[in-house]
């Protein structure tokens, strides 16, 4: 493997997005990160698909293994997933059809009247890292805006987050609105957040309940 590809792989594992990133121990600022190294690899004539398949993906796989065996924690996964997401953004327009498979278009939002976003942000970063094209609509998003985004983007997945019992009811409103607009069958609806439960998800007709970010990713990976 070329030196540059190996450096990309290592920086994905390290979770260093660019040269401003201090890295794991906080002492690597100034050294090229994934963004600069991907550009360097392209300049060296390495194909986008090789960069993705021989450096970026193996790096993320290694991160996944380290997480599985307890060596890595959530922030390490997030850092690596961010790198993958940035690299994909650079490489995607250059890739030939079939070079890369995306898992689908994922719209994600915290529902109306609810401003909590930590869980949602973790899920969206991890989704990007695991190959979904994610559009994060933010917090406190009204039902009609969410459904409009599903329709316009032809989303395959919709993730809804709520941290309050007073707001989780909006999830059902959104599912009902999807049905009204004839969009329910095109999109898998995933729900999560502290007050949400498997029973609640079933009751409102959601497809996936994620107990936490990793549970959600795991279930989605199983479905795809």
């Amino acid at each position: 493997m070329s030196d540059t590809l190996e450096k990309i792989r290592k920086n994905v594992i390290e979770g260093r997005i660019d040269s401003e990133d201090e890295g794991f121990e906080g002492d690597m600022e100034g050294e090229p990160g994934v963004v600069e190294l991907v550009q360097q690899a392209l300049d060296e004539g390495i194909s986008p698909s090789d960069i993705l398949n021989k450096a970026v993906s193996p790096g993320m796989e290694e991160v996944g293994q380290r997480y599985e065996n307890g060596e890595y924690l959530i922030p390490d996964m997030l850092a690596a997933a961010e790198c993958v997401s940035e690299a994909t953004e650079i490489l995607e327009p250059m890739l030939l059809e079939g070079d890369v498979k995306t898992r689908g278009k994922f719209i994600i939002a915290t529902v109306e009247d609810d401003l909590h976003d930590i869980g949602k942000n973790i899920v969206s970063t991890l989704l990007r890292g695991s190959g979904f094209e994610v559009e994060d609509l933010g917090v406190g998003v009204k039902a009609d805006k969410i459904v409009q985004a599903v329709e316009e983007k032809k989303a395959s997945h919709l993730g809804l987050s709520a941290l309050l019992t007073t707001t989780m009811g909006h999830m059902e409103d959104i599912i009902n609105l999807l049905k009204e607009k004839g969009l329910r069958d095109q999109v898998k609806v995933c729900v999560g957040g502290a007050p949400v439960s498997e029973d609640f998800a079933k009751k409102i007709g959601a497809d996936v309940y994620g107990e936490d970010a990793f549970d959600a990713i795991h279930k989605l990976e199983k479905m795809s």
């Binding site: 979770g15 990133d21 201090e22 794991f24 121990e25 906080g26 924690l73 959530i74 922030p75 390490d76 997030l78 850092a79 961010e82 976003d117 930590i118 942000n121 973790i122 970063t125």
Partner: peptide, 15 residues
Amino acid sequence: GRSSTKFMKAARSGL
């Protein structure tokens, strides 16, 4: 604009 990711990344060495 992505403060939680930034804080989480910066938390790695403290963890």
